[in-house]
Amino acid sequence: MLGATGSIGTSALDVIGRHPDRLRATVLAAGCNVEALLSLCRRHRPLHAVVADEDCFEALRDGLREAGLDTRAHAGAGAIEELAASGECDTVVAAIVGAAGLPSTLAAARSGKRLLLANKESLVLAGELLMAAAREGGATVIPIDSEHNAIFQCLPPQPAGNGNAGLPDEAMRAQVARLVLTASGGPFRGRNRDSLRQVTVEQAVDHPNWSMGPKISVDSATLMNKGLEVIEAHHLFGLPGSRIDVLVHPQSLVHSMVEFVDGSTMAQLGLPDMRTALAVGFAWPDRIGSGVGGLDLLACGGRLDFEPPDTAAFPCLALAFRALEAGGTAPAVLNAANEVAVSAFLQRRVGFLSIAALVEETLAALPATAAGSLEVLREADAAARRHVGALVADAPVPA
C-alpha cells in the first residue's frame, strides 16, 4: 500500500480490513507522517513499514519497537521501489500523490504485480513507458480513479497475461465509439471566470461530493483533474483524445460511460466512495463487499443531470487536451507545471486563476519534444518545475 496514510490508503485499508480471510496488507508506505503510519501498523500488522523521508527512519523504527510489533522499518524512495517489486506482495496500490509515485509504480509494473493504479501522474508523466512496462512484465493494471474504474467495469473482461495488461486489446477498442468521463464540476460549478478571482484555499479544497486530499481537491476545482484523467484514459484504453469526451454530472452517481459502435452506451453508477473501485481492484473479476451501500436513485433525488464543461471559466481542461494532442513531453510539462502552481496556491503565494495561467505559459515556453526515455521525461518535468518556480517567485503575493 503506497500512500497508506492518504485518503486512498485509508479507503483501501478499510476494504482490506473487511476481508481478513482473503486480504492482508503486508507493506505500508508513507511520506513522513510517522504517527499515522504507526497507528496503521498497530491495526494491520504489516511485515514492512517504510517512510520516504529518510530522516524519519529512527522514529519509525523506535515506534514499531515500542508497540511490540515485528514489522520491519525501512526508509527512502529506493526502499519503497524495492518493496513494491518484491515477493512480499502480489498486489500494489499505487497512491503516492504526484510525480514522486512514478518510480515505485514502474517497479511494480515491471515485476508483474496486480497494479491498482491511483497515481494518475504516473500515467500523465510517462504513460507509454508505464503501459509498456506492464505489458512486458505481465502486470495487470486496474485503474482506481472512479472514472477509469467505471470504464474498466463497462468493458468486457480482458484476460491478463496476453500482453494487454488486462486492458482492452485492439479488437475491443474497435468496438468502442467513445469514452465519456463524468466530472462533478467541483465546488465552483456554474461560476464565471471573474467570480473566481477571489477564491480562497479553503473554498477550493471543499469538494461537494468527494473526500480527497488538498492537491486533488484543487485539481477538481480547476478541472485539471479531469484533464489529467483524459490523458490517463488515452494511455489506459488506447483511444485518441478525439474519442474521449467530458460531461459535467453534479450528482457524481454516473462515474463514466462507454459508447459502442452499435449505438449502445454502458454506464457504471454508484455512490461517490472510492472503496467501490478499490474492492473491484482487489477482487476482479470477482466481487466482494466494499462497505459502500447500494444506490437508491429516488433517495438521491431521482434525477441525473449533465452539462458541458465551461472551458472559458476553467481552461485547465482545454490545456490538458492540448497537451495530449501535442504528445511527447507536453503532458509531463503540463503535470509538473500544475503541481508547482497548485502548491503555490495552497501556500497562498498565487491566486486561483494563476494556476491555469502558469500552466499555459509553461506549455508555451517549453514546446513538446519526443519522449523516448524516462530520462527525457524527467528532464522535461524538472524544466517545467524550474520555469513555474521562477514565475511564482516573481509574482506578487495575492492580497
Rank of each mutant, 00 (worst) to 15 (best):
L391G: 03
L297D: 10
H19S: 01
M274C: 08
L116P: 12
I151V: 15
D286H: 02
E360L: 03
E88V: 12
F152R: 06
T5S: 03
A393E: 12
P396T: 10
A233I: 12
G6N: 02
T10C: 05
L64T: 05
G17H: 03
I16G: 03
R43P: 08
S184I: 13
H74E: 10
A4W: 01
A336H: 08
V246E: 09
L37P: 02
V51F: 15
R197E: 14
M131D: 06
D219K: 01
E66R: 05
A99V: 12
A29I: 11
A79E: 10
L167A: 05
A99I: 07
N209A: 15
Q347N: 12
G190N: 08
T329F: 11
D381E: 14
M224Q: 02
P240Y: 13
V92P: 13
L317A: 14
V254E: 07
L47H: 13
C316L: 15
A79H: 06
L366E: 04
A204D: 11
L298M: 12
R349I: 01
L297S: 08
G98H: 04
S264L: 07
L239H: 10
P103G: 15
P315C: 14
A126F: 13
V124E: 10
D305L: 07
G270Q: 09
F352R: 01
G87Y: 14
V15D: 02
V97C: 06
L130H: 06
V388M: 03
G68F: 03
A108W: 04
T276W: 01
D273H: 01
V218F: 03
P103D: 10
P156K: 00
M212E: 11
G137Q: 05
R243P: 03
V176P: 10
S111P: 04
H249A: 12
